Amino acid sequence: MSELALKKSSHKGLAIRSIIKRAIFITIGAIIMGYGLEAILIPNQMIDGGVTGLSMLLSHITPINLSVFLVLLNLPFFFLGYKQIGKTFAISMLYGIIALSVATSFMHHVEPIVHDELLAVVFGGVTLGIGVGLTLRNGGVLDGTETLAILIEKRLPFSVGEIIMFVNVIIFAIAAFVFGLENALFSMLTYYIAFKTIDIVVKGMEDMKSMYIISDHTTEIADAITERLGRGVTYLHGEGSYSGEDKRVILCVFTRLEETKMKDIIREIDSGAFTISTEVAEVRGGRFKKRDIH
């Protein structure tokens, strides 16, 4: 077999393994979310946000099972996603929604695990967040609201977050009439906890940050960061607009858990250093691996 054929075979094998891995984690995420809905939220008359929340409302006021509404209400967003975002996204979304629908169908008569509203809020929010977070982290979607928000954002002067918030305000307002104001407020709190949990699951506890440091002691600060934090730094060259002086700027990328130690190092060497911290969505390549600290 030629080298080119071997490479193609290797790439194909990696692609298949990637698809299988994605499907497994989307399935796990859907099962976890389904359990959170059927064993925690529904028995306590609370809802999730988005299309899932609307499906829960409709299943409550009609004899139709939740699993049916989950598929029917999300189908339009599947077609929108297929046309506007892409085939891979749409297929992953459809698989996730079907997996969630099947999970809720099998767990429809599962025994509730909590009967206290506050416990339901906390554990319901965490369970939903873990399920949705696992799915999002592996390229899947369990609710079509995000798809709608992404598409509307291109035509209206609102962000994705603002559109999702507006949709959820309407859904929770309807929930106040169906389940009562108190349960609607509990539902909003559950959604907030789920949102924060999703953020942790998707980004991880070691969320990345970057920092620009302008100081007259850049060499000492850079050496201390390398020795005490185990992170490499990059020197950038800048010029002061007012003074016209050449300045050496330190750029360093580190985890959120290392932020406090980073600030302590800078404060100890130069308490007057000018620093700028920013969130980093992703880090790839280079020599980012953390060094051993001696």
Score class of each variant (00 low, 15 high):
144 G>N: 03
15 A>T: 12
294 H>K: 14
95 Y>D: 08
171 I>E: 00
258 E>R: 05
174 I>M: 15
245 E>V: 00
204 G>Y: 07
238 G>N: 04
266 I>L: 06
152 I>A: 15
174 I>L: 15
240 G>H: 07
148 L>K: 03
184 A>V: 04
195 F>V: 03
264 D>C: 05
154 K>Y: 08
136 L>W: 03
31 I>K: 02
116 D>E: 13
284 R>N: 09
129 G>A: 05
124 G>P: 07
45 Q>T: 07
198 I>M: 04
199 D>P: 00
138 N>I: 00
16 I>A: 13
121 V>L: 13
173 A>W: 01
294 H>F: 11
36 G>M: 01
137 R>W: 03
215 S>A: 11
265 I>H: 07
181 L>C: 08
55 S>Y: 03
72 L>S: 10
281 A>Y: 11
155 R>W: 06
275 T>Y: 09
80 L>A: 14
218 T>K: 07
121 V>C: 09
184 A>T: 04
62 T>K: 10
291 R>I: 11
50 G>S: 11
288 F>G: 12
53 G>S: 12
111 E>R: 09
251 L>I: 09
21 K>D: 08
50 G>E: 10
167 V>E: 12
44 N>D: 08
189 L>A: 12
117 E>L: 14
155 R>N: 11
243 S>A: 07
157 P>R: 10
242 Y>P: 00
73 L>S: 12
57 L>E: 06
23 A>T: 12
7 K>P: 01
204 G>E: 09
30 A>I: 08
182 E>N: 15
273 A>Y: 01
281 A>E: 14
185 L>R: 00
278 T>H: 13
59 S>H: 11
230 G>V: 02
7 K>Y: 14
184 A>R: 00
110 V>G: 06
278 T>S: 15
72 L>M: 13
33 M>F: 14
160 V>A: 15
94 L>W: 07
274 F>P: 10
4 L>Y: 11
153 E>M: 14
251 L>G: 08
13 G>I: 05
118 L>W: 14
30 A>W: 10
248 R>G: 00
196 K>H: 04
172 F>I: 04
69 F>Y: 15
259 E>Y: 07
17 R>T: 10
52 T>R: 00
